[in-house]
Write a protein that binds this DNA or RNA. Sequence first.
DNA 1: CCAACACGTTTGCACCACAAACCGCTTTGC
DNA 2: GCAAAGCGGTTTGTGGTGCAAACGTGTTGG
Lengths: 98, 98
Amino acid sequence: MNEQLRAISELDRVIHEPGRLMILALLAAVKECDFLYLQRETEMNKGNLSSHLTRLEEARYVEIQKTYRGKVPQTVLRLTRAGRAAFDEYRKGLRAAF
Amino acid sequence: MNEQLRAISELDRVIHEPGRLMILALLAAVKECDFLYLQRETEMNKGNLSSHLTRLEEARYVEIQKTYRGKVPQTVLRLTRAGRAAFDEYRKGLRAAF
DNA sequence: CCAACACGTTTGCACCACAAACCGCTTTGC
DNA sequence: GCAAAGCGGTTTGTGGTGCAAACGTGTTGG
C-alpha cells in the first residue's frame, strides 16, 4: 500500500463525518461557542447536531458545558486538547493524501 | 454559513467514504487496473471491495469490465469521465475546506 | 473424479446519520 | 392565573451502509 492510500485508510472516522468535521472546524476557529450558534452556522437541525456533539464528547474531542443565560438554558461547546490534536492529525492526514 | 463549512457540507458522500476514496485515488493514478491489484493495494477484503465498486459503478464513476486472462476471470476497473470529474471536484472541495 | 483453489458476489448483521417526536422550562396572550 | 406557544435541546425510530463471513462458479491438481 502506498503512502497516499495509507493516509486515506488511517483517517479518523469520528472526525471524517462531514457533520462533525464542520463542528470541529468551527470550534477550532472560535475556541468556544454555544449550541445555537453552531446550529445556525452549520445549518444542521437540532437533533442531528445534538447527536454529533454527543459522539464527539464520547470521543473526548469536545467538552459540553450546560449553563444558563439568565433563565434560558445554554450549552457551551469547546474543543478539548485531545480534540484539537486529533483534528490537526486529521488535517495532516488529508494533506498527506492529497 | 461560511465558505469553509459550505465546502465541507457539499462534499460528495459517495466519494467521501475512505474505501472508495482509495479506489478512486488509485484509478485516477493508473487509468486502469484489475480487481486483485486493487485488493492488494488497498488491503480491503474482496467482499468489501466488491460492494464499493458496485456502488461506484451505480454512481457511474467507475466502469467494470469482466474479461478473462486465459481461463481465469479478470475484472478490469476504469474511471469514467464523470468519475474523474467528480473526483477532481471532491479534491477541489477539500482544498476549499482546508 | 473430487478436493482444493481462484475470483468475485451475496447475505446478514451491526452501526450510524438523520429527522420526527418528545421533554422540561419559560414567556405570551387573554 | 392558566392555557398555549416558544425555546433549547434530547431521545426515538428507521432507512441506509460499511463490513466480513458465507456462498457461487469455474479451474487446476492429484
